[in-house]
Design a protein around this nucleic acid. Structure first.
Lengths: 121, 121
DNA sequence: TGCGCATATGTCGTCAGGTGACATATGTTG
DNA sequence: CAACATATGTCACCTGACGACATATGCGCA
């Protein structure tokens, strides 16, 4: 099946829906909070992603409410989305761990020249 | 500077160079190992990424050797690349942690197998 | 009264980066 | 000698993120 690896903005979006349902604008605010102010999801990314994730069944429309005469859609994680987010988070953590481990492994042997010394040129 | 967030294949590539210098094909094999057999980096991604990362100064040509009459380039992480990888790994870990935390917060009220119990009104 | 800002949803063109298919060449093994 | 691992490389295509723009309401304040 080899599905494409989820990108971070998408992952942040799903994370923003992990604890409770939210509507679009609230999601952008939540993402800013999650990323400690580092990531501002533009509406172009947001609404495109929402549509895509709906189609993929990772999120669902929790309810629709009318506020000030305008339709507001509140989204929620689907069961599939929840499972997927769990898997992605785990995989991401593993990748990050491995990167840190290797970086640490290197710095521990300090400036040791790589085993394979210059073999011609 | 608002640089684009690094994608996972790129991060895996840098990780594959974190402990010791490697040439292209060795990198793909290492990535497979790192990802526990889940990610196979195609040559299209690989050589494109290598060129890009060279241009960005995140990796360097460690040495060039001639094997079987063919040029083989061995790449290594630059100091910048090492710092960048550290930062990315940290950020990734934080994101993954936050996702898990929120998922956990939710599942604490609905622990057990993810049932399709649509309690959502 | 109206100006700017936060809130709020949405569209569209552009672009970076990843994917998959293809090309090419040597060494090894059955 | 066929098939496969090793090895480097190109290219067209597509997805998804980005940035700019459009639009509309409520609210504070000058």
């Amino acid at each position: 099946m080899t599905q494409r690896v989820m990108q971070e903005p998408t992952l942040l979006l799903l994370t923003a829906l992990a604890d409770e349902p939210r509507h679009g604008y609230a999601i952008t605010q939540e993402i800013r909070k999650i990323s400690d102010g580092q990531v501002t999801m533009r509406t172009g990314t947001l609404y495109g992603a929402l549509e895509r994730l709906l189609k993929q069944g990772l999120i669902e429309v929790h309810r629709e409410e009318v506020v000030d005469g305008r339709l507001r859609r509140v989204y929620t994680l689907s069961d599939t989305g929840r499972e997927r987010l769990e898997a992605e988070a785990e995989r991401l953590a593993a990748t990050a761990r491995e990167a840190s481990r290797r970086l640490g492994a290197f710095s521990s042997q300090a400036t040791g020249s790589p085993r394979t010394s210059a073999a011609t040129a």
